[in-house]
Amino acid sequence: MDKLDNIHEILSAIEQSDRLLVTAHARPDGDAVGSMLAMAMVLEQLGKQVDMVSCDRVPPIYRALPCAPRIRQACKVEEHYDAVILLECDGIERSRLDGLEGRFLINIDHHVSGRPFGHVNWIDQKACAVAEMVYDLALAAGARVTPEMATCLYTAVLTDTGSFCYAGTDMHTFELAGDLVRHGANPMVIAQNTYFAHPESKMLLLGAALSNLRREGNVAWMWVTHEDMQRTHAAEEDCEGLVNYAIAISGVEIAVFLRELPDRKVRLSIRSKGVLNVANVAESFGGGGHHHASGCTLPGPLPVAEEQILACLSTQLGLRLQGQHVARAV
């Protein structure tokens, strides 16, 4: 089934629905938030009643986006909806929302780990962001791309391409960005709101992470403990993007950021400059993502999680990585 067929199938399902719920994966990033907002705007132009729900709150840097306060934080969905649109999820579990079982599901995803779990599925691994797919859907539906919609979509594209740095960024990506600017997105304002509006807690947490930075060959990794999170008064969203400081090191090809959760499980963010498909690494631990950016959660504790991810990378890269630094530090 090609893209036009996918879009037609989704629009047909939307046409038959009066009330829809839009959600995305837990710990929403810029693509999840921006695409949720833009999707809701499209649906409302089509005369639909729309709610947006996330199990986690919108990160502070995205709360200035148009209509962002309308995203309701909840753990369970109890209201009636004719259809639920899930963005960037490989299953309903990825949303961490209870109450989605047995509902009519529309699945829109661009991850290489995407799965056709919905009643209607559109998975396009070539899309630079799910926002690109929402934009195509909006055009096909005849919706007007307002400045507010363009702002949400541009933010999504900017963040999910790593500021147009990740593999897959091509001429089409910049054409999409250009279209969104023509529709009213302001690149300077969006960049300032995204990159120059972090809370102090994130900077303090970054300091803690960098103090734990380790490197062996072309692999770098760093971590924060639950105590670090408490000491810096950091929220979960403050961890977003910290791994990029490790991958930014000259000569480093693979970077890992480990975050200890309150229950001592360990959340991993993994990045690659292209030498390794880190989506495969994450999938081996039950996670997923993109070739260059992925994530997963390990049972912990932190020293064991470090040993596990380094052992996996050692096998993949043919290196011998020693994972004893966390054990000595915690």
Rank of each mutant, 00 (worst) to 15 (best):
V189G: 01
S95L: 05
G91S: 15
E306R: 00
Q73L: 00
R267T: 05
P28H: 11
A127C: 07
L258Q: 06
R63I: 03
L86A: 14
I61P: 04
K126M: 11
P199F: 03
R271W: 14
P60M: 04
L205M: 11
D170T: 01
C55M: 10
Q192A: 13
L153E: 05
H172T: 10
R271S: 07
L46F: 01
E15Y: 14
C296V: 02
D51M: 11
Q324V: 10
M229T: 10
L139F: 03
A38L: 11
C296L: 04
P199I: 00
V275M: 10
L276I: 10
T194I: 14
A279Q: 14
E132G: 05
E15K: 13
G287R: 00
A305S: 15
A13F: 07
D51R: 14
R94K: 14
G217F: 11
E132P: 01
M188R: 14
G99K: 09
V189K: 14
R267P: 05
E253Y: 05
Q316N: 03
N6I: 06
L268T: 04
L204F: 13
M203S: 08
A129L: 02
H183L: 12
V181D: 06
M171P: 00
V189T: 14
G30K: 01
V278I: 15
A197K: 04
Q230R: 14
I85D: 01
H325V: 09
N280L: 13
L153C: 08
K76Q: 14
L302N: 08
S294G: 03
G251Q: 03
E175S: 08
I249H: 07
G99F: 09
E44T: 10
G99L: 12
E260Q: 11
T315G: 14
K273T: 15
D29I: 01
R264H: 13
D136N: 09
G184K: 05
T169R: 05
A327W: 06
Q230W: 04
K76R: 15
R271K: 10
L210A: 12
E253I: 02
L21C: 01
E307L: 09
H198C: 02
A68Q: 04
A220Y: 07
A248K: 08
A185F: 04
A248T: 09
D109I: 09
P60W: 00
G318E: 02
D109C: 05
L87F: 10
M149K: 12
I10E: 03
A305Y: 07
W223F: 13
L97V: 09
Q73A: 03
A209I: 09
I7L: 15
H111A: 02
R259Y: 01
E200Q: 11
R19G: 04
N277A: 12
T146Q: 12
D29G: 08
D18G: 15
H226A: 12
T173D: 07
E132K: 03
M39Q: 11
N107R: 07
T297F: 00
S269E: 04
V58E: 01
P59M: 03
A327G: 14
G287C: 02
A156I: 00
